[in-house]
Simulated scan of single mutants.
Amino acid sequence: MNYISLGKSNIQISEVSFGTMSLKGAKSHDKGLVRKAFDSGINYFDTADLYDKGENEKLIGEALKEIRSKVVIGTKVGNQLRADGSGWDWNPRKSYILSAVDESLRRLQTDYIDYYQLHGGTLEDPMDETIEAFERLKEQGKIREYGISSIRPNVIREYVKRSNIAGVMMQYSLLDRRPEEACFDLLQQAGIPVLVRGGYAKGILLDKAPQSFLSWSVKEVEQMMEGLKELVPALDIRRSWVLHFALAHPAVGSVVSGIRTPDQLAETLEAYMKEIPQENWYQDLNQTFPAKTYQDHR
């Protein structure tokens, strides 16, 4: 497993990391899976206070408490659960972030969060106030670094200009190549790594039935998938190509894979370790999956 620096910090995270949102099985099963991932070289585990109404953070805290100093924990803030349980509201206010972090720390059974992310963001947010909150938390030692989870180029640009974010989590895959046009060069020049989510496009790029995706119609997705399967008929090789496509861009630091079962963990690690034998594989994928641009939030 290779590791990259989170921004300009000394935090090193694995190129393949563990997205924990899908963990909803028995606690013993899920905790064992998390520990098995660590034993396999994965050291970054990504959760959020919103996932399972905080229960996901509790699970990750329990699973990692015995090896806390050896792992990197990332969680997110900004979606405030309503007291009546009917949903959540967006809240990027400084006062909320400064109070929400303590609840995440309690659930995670730790006294610091390695990487604290704003879970969204708009241009209408009190952005300077939000940044002040993260900077204060760094000063207090409650977090080591902070970043944002966003697909909005206009929001990302503002945070690059105004803050000291150490990373940006964003959707990126063969079916969603928009970040290449609007964000990747900017982030690469700023030394801010991208943490990719949705690298398998909801499983469509593997073995799920084609469906409409973003502005691609079902027919367009079917045609692209036929082209991909002609290039790589075997599912295990296809999984490797899809994963390495995301990792190949120099702006990308890690692919956060949603892992739910031991088989998925094994398949992800196998895909990462597998060598790509064909010289022009990246160019072939470029031709099979055309890039699109962001229409909104520019």
Results as ranks from 00 to 15, higher is better:
2 N>F: 10
3 Y>T: 08
4 I>P: 01
11 I>L: 12
11 I>H: 02
24 K>W: 05
26 A>H: 11
36 K>W: 13
38 F>D: 05
40 S>I: 05
48 A>H: 04
49 D>Y: 00
49 D>R: 07
55 E>T: 04
56 N>S: 12
59 L>H: 04
59 L>E: 10
78 G>R: 02
89 D>L: 07
92 P>W: 00
92 P>I: 04
99 S>A: 13
101 V>Q: 07
103 E>K: 11
104 S>M: 00
106 R>T: 06
109 Q>M: 11
117 Q>A: 11
125 D>L: 07
127 M>V: 14
130 T>E: 02
145 E>Q: 12
149 S>A: 11
151 I>G: 04
158 E>A: 06
163 S>G: 09
166 A>P: 08
168 V>S: 03
172 Y>G: 00
172 Y>T: 01
175 L>E: 07
176 D>E: 14
181 E>A: 13
182 A>G: 05
184 F>N: 00
210 P>Y: 01
223 Q>M: 07
227 G>C: 01
229 K>I: 04
231 L>Y: 14
234 A>R: 09
241 W>C: 15
244 H>C: 08
248 A>H: 13
248 A>T: 06
253 G>N: 04
254 S>D: 05
255 V>T: 10
255 V>Y: 06
259 I>P: 03
261 T>H: 10
267 E>M: 11
267 E>Y: 13
269 L>I: 11
272 Y>Q: 05
272 Y>L: 15
279 E>K: 15
279 E>R: 11
280 N>T: 10
280 N>K: 11
288 T>V: 13
